[in-house]
């Protein structure tokens, strides 16, 4: 069996006096879609933030692709996020001042790509996600489902190794949410992207290959691989 792509060991993190993670262990294999479930306040989002290098844990280790990432500096973690990770969050992640295509191109622009090339690459995602004709809209002019699809395009445009999705359908109705999940899973499988999906909805978690449950800041894996 190969080493997991992401491996967290005994991760703890407290916000002030409140412990959010108390020794969480989790392994994510390359190419799998893992759902992290758990009641609200269980620490599932915090675990995702730690895995994605957004938050630095108080103790424990996090390895990504054989490299320890939990004690990296702010600069290195930014670069890691930009080059290796993509993100789809519940809402508010698009830059309201920018058009949809500029938002999608943002990771490429931040990585130093030429503006014209970045926008061209960004635009190529719009038909794939059923967003034709919305390239010049700003986030305020998009419906919830459209905004999430734009966010998905942005999360995948730089061809990341891992896509982190935190309640990506949390602000959507069931039908729209399922469309977004269909596209997310479809694109991730096509690109071979590993997905870490945080959700409290079983129907959304059912899109994953496997689920882990976080209770009281600890993670348990309950089911094996689907295939």
């Amino acid at each position: 069996m190969t080493d997991p792509l992401i491996h967290a060991r005994q991760v703890t993190l407290a916000f002030g006096e409140t412990p959010a993670l108390r020794g969480a262990d989790l392994a994510v294999d390359e190419g799998e879609i893992l759902a992290i479930m758990g009641p609200s306040g269980s620490g599932k989002s915090t675990l995702l933030h730690c895995l994605a290098g957004i938050l630095a844990p108080d103790s424990g280790e996090i390895h990504f692709d054989g490299r320890r990432i939990d004690h990296l500096g702010e600069q290195e973690r930014s670069t890691l996020r930009r080059d290796s990770f993509g993100f789809v969050f519940q809402f508010g992640q698009l830059v309201p001042e920018l058009t949809a295509e500029e938002n999608v191109a943002l990771p490429l622009l931040l990585g130093g790509a030429k503006r014209a090339a970045a926008l061209r690459q960004a635009r190529s995602w719009f038909p794939k996600l059923g967003l034709d004709g919305l390239e010049a809209r700003r986030s305020g002019e998009l419906s919830g489902g459209q905004a999430q699809r734009v966010a998905l395009a942005r999360g995948l445009v730089a061809e990341p190794r891992v896509l982190f999705a935190d309640e990506p359908t949390g602000a959507l109705d069931s039908l729209t949410g399922e469309q977004v999940m269909d596209l997310l899973v479809g694109c991730a499988r096509e690109q071979g992207t590993t997905v870490v999906l945080v959700t409290h909805e079983a129907r959304i978690a059912a899109y994953a290959d496997r689920e882990a449950i976080v209770r009281d800041g600890r993670a348990t894996s309950l089911s094996g691989r689907l295939t």
């Binding site: 702010e74 600069q75 670069t79 996020r81 943002l106 931040l110």
Partner: peptide, 19 residues
């Protein structure tokens, strides 16, 4: 508020503090 949201969004997708 909006600025913070915007810059946080940019930081999320990998903008360095310097950028």
């Amino acid at each position: 508020a909006r600025r913070e949201q915007r810059f946080a969004a940019m930081r999320l997708v990998g903008a360095t503090p310097r950028q």
